[in-house]
């Protein structure tokens, strides 16, 4: 992905030199034309066309914002309820993610989900230990994480 962005950047600069026009508008036009030629030759690269990855990153960003709001609302509910009837506990979550940044992103996203918090990561980096405010629905929490976050992160790094 980085290679394709760099190439697109170089192509935009080439376009500016070819047209002898050193303005932001010329750069944008060159970038769009470079994007078009990259799209034309997209099968040339081992990775897929990079705009798809950027779209996945934007989706992940929106998931992050949505979960941030939901988490704070759910904590607010717990604090304001007159009687504490939640059962805290720790459960293990097995992940298939490999790269360092993927695991870090997943851990941070889990921490921001309503009612869960990453406590530790196992030495072989395959299990995340998660503290839940309410352990009763741990199975549901695991499947939620797997569907929403893990898939979104995999989509970015594919």
């Amino acid at each position: 992905m980085a290679l394709q962005i760099l190439l697109n950047f170089i192509l935009a600069l080439c376009w500016m030199f070819l047209n002898n026009d050193y303005t932001a508008a010329a750069f944008v036009v060159g970038y769009v034309i470079g994007l078009f030629s990259l799209f034309l030759m997209r099968r040339f690269f081992r990775r897929r066309f990079y705009l798809i990855n950027i779209w996945a990153i934007i989706k992940l960003l929106f998931i992050f914002i949505k979960e941030l709001v939901l988490a704070n609302v759910s904590v607010l509910k717990t604090i304001l309820s007159p009687r504490l009837k939640n059962k805290p506990g720790i459960f293990a979550f097995k992940t298939d993610l490999k790269a360092d940044w993927e695991i870090t992103t997943l851990a941070n996203l889990i921490t921001l989900t309503p009612g869960t918090l990453v406590v530790d990561i196992s030495d072989d980096r395959s299990i995340l230990y998660i503290h839940a405010v309410d352990i009763d629905d741990a199975e549901k929490a695991i499947s939620d994480i797997r569907i929403s976050f893990e898939e979104a992160i995999k989509e970015v790094s594919r």
């Binding site: 190439l7 170089i10 192509l11 080439c14 376009w15 070819l18 047209n19 060159g30 034309i33 470079g34 030629s37 990259l38 034309l40 030759m41 040339f44």
Partner: peptide, 14 residues
């Protein structure tokens, strides 16, 4: 070729 073909393509659009 990986780089040059793109630059030629850009020049052709120009």
């Amino acid at each position: 070729t990986k780089i040059a073909s793109f630059i030629i393509l850009l020049f052709s659009f120009h």
